[in-house]
Design a protein around this nucleic acid. Structure first.
Lengths: 136, 136
DNA sequence: TATTGTTATACTCTATAACTATA
DNA sequence: TATAGTTATAGAGTATAACAATA
């Protein structure tokens, strides 16, 4: 039952649960929901993405993306554009305001919580190295 | 702007996002929602907890807990009991069935994903050691 | 007066199924 | 026939505000 891999994963999971409120909390500073925050994060500047691919990246049904993008569009952060190749497809692009908000959002989310910030330089480098290997 | 702490946190955050669908996915194997799964996880056997404290642990408003517990109770996993000390309070206790489901749920969630399982024994031990320091 | 749990309300996210316009 | 996006629907989570019972 127990194993080093399970131990490590359970610790990661505990950390995950501890910081679970962080995305909704930071998102609300910008008047956004967690789902809208994740969508915004995935919409990289100058890399328009079809609705369908956003749904896959968000790991949710395509029908949800309609509403999420509706609200981002109503806020003036995102634009729906017709695809020149396939007239069924709509590609999503950040507006100027969307790029600004996204950038501030990412900066805010990337601020390390105190327990991480308190680690030694050596631990931080080791952690970074291992996590890079995990993420590949 | 950049720092080893931010680097490490951003990698952790990326890992969190990657495994974000895991809780709802595993929960649904048991016919539960993510919130119900988190609540069940927090209800330790032989450690009854007031509704209020569960709300705090879930980092949500107390009014939500009413519905979440309603559904767990309807499934026969949890019981509301009067507190002997304070008649305003209701304490939550797992039923026998609740203990069984919780145990299987935790076992399933604790299964390490492939990218973690593939780490070397040395990396796993180092990771475990650092995470223990983070969590305290 | 303050606190616990509940209810009412409104909004968002979620999946499913059915629809449309394309391909 | 199949796919992209939408709509309709129903269920669940979320916060806010107001309430009854109790402290």
């Amino acid at each position: 039952m127990r194993s080093p891999a399970r131990d490590a994963w359970e610790l990661l999971f505990e950390l995950f649960v501890t910081h679970r409120p962080r995305v909704p909390s930071v998102a609300s500073e910008f008047g956004l929901s967690a789902a809208q925050c994740h969508a915004l994060r995935l919409l990289r500047p100058a890399r328009p993405v079809p609705m369908r691919r956003l749904a896959e990246a968000l790991a949710c049904d395509a029908s949800n993306v309609t509403g999420i993008v509706d609200r981002l569009e109503a806020r003036g952060l995102v634009e729906r554009r017709p695809s020149p190749r396939d007239r069924r497809v709509k590609v999503l692009a950040l507006t100027r305001s969307g790029r600004t908000v996204r950038s501030r959002l990412l900066a805010r989310i990337g601020e390390p919580p105190a327990p991480i910030a308190r680690l030694s330089l050596r631990d931080l480098r080791t952690l970074r190295s291992i996590l890079r290997r995990v993420i590949g």
